[in-house]
Design a protein around this nucleic acid. Structure first.
Lengths: 124, 124
DNA sequence: CAATGAACATTATGTTCATCC
DNA sequence: GGATGAACATAATGTTCATTG
């Protein structure tokens, strides 16, 4: 009967990666779930990475639980009836977002270094 | 009732990463499981990555199934009775290893680019 | 049918147990 | 106790289904 698991500290998880992007996108434009998915897929297409809709929704829900984002249900542009869920920063969310991004920056740097090392060690 | 899963193409998996290192280490020195684990932990310690013994064994077993490595059971240096499992290339394994490494090189480059992009997009 | 979300399924990986010198 | 491996358990994430407008 297992207890909590301690991560081995390999590369960062997809969820965290998406949360980072979703914060940054929220700083920039007002978008809703599936649109965010579209944008991300476009961005990552040249890199062979195609996130799925569930991961994006879970990342968004995570950010809400973290107190970083909040939902704003609104009629879709132009549409009369289609209501979609936009996101903006929660009260105090900006600060928490800044903190999260700082952590992720360190994490990305770490991963970059690990990968660089692997390239050197195995192909240098 | 789920079918096969298609990977989203995010970062490379720990297993593949370890297999790459185990091939390279096999090219260099003759080591057995737990020693390989030691070496890897030492290497990655500064990067906050600490693989566990099961992952290393599974990676080695994978490489055997791939026809890349084979086991050589031998008495441990100096020890009279302690028998350990060393690894060397299987027949034709060198070629397959070369192929695998080529794939992993591409994969590592892709991951490096993805991470670099994330740093630019979110902190640039 | 687009959008959201939950339920469900599987894979990746971490932890514990068994066995053998 | 070191070494190997399998069994077991959980976490991460992909796929399908339900609901709503």
């Amino acid at each position: 009967m297992g207890e909590k698991r301690t991560p081995s500290g390999f590369l960062l998880k997809q969820r965290a990666f998406l949360k980072l992007y979703l914060i940054t996108l929220t700083e920039q434009e007002r978008l809703y779930g599936l649109k965010l998915l579209d944008v991300l897929r476009q961005e990552f297409k040249p890199f062979g990475y195609r996130p799925n809709h569930s991961e994006v929704y879970k990342a968004l829900h995570d950010l809400i639980e973290d107190g970083i984002l909040k939902q704003v249900k609104q009629k879709k542009e132009g549409m009369k009836y289609q209501e979609v869920v936009y996101y903006r920063f929660a009260e105090g969310g900006q600060e928490k977002a800044k903190l999260y991004k700082r952590q992720l920056k360190a994490e990305l740097d770490r991963c970059a270094a690990l990968i660089r090392k692997a390239i050197e060690d195995n192909f240098g």
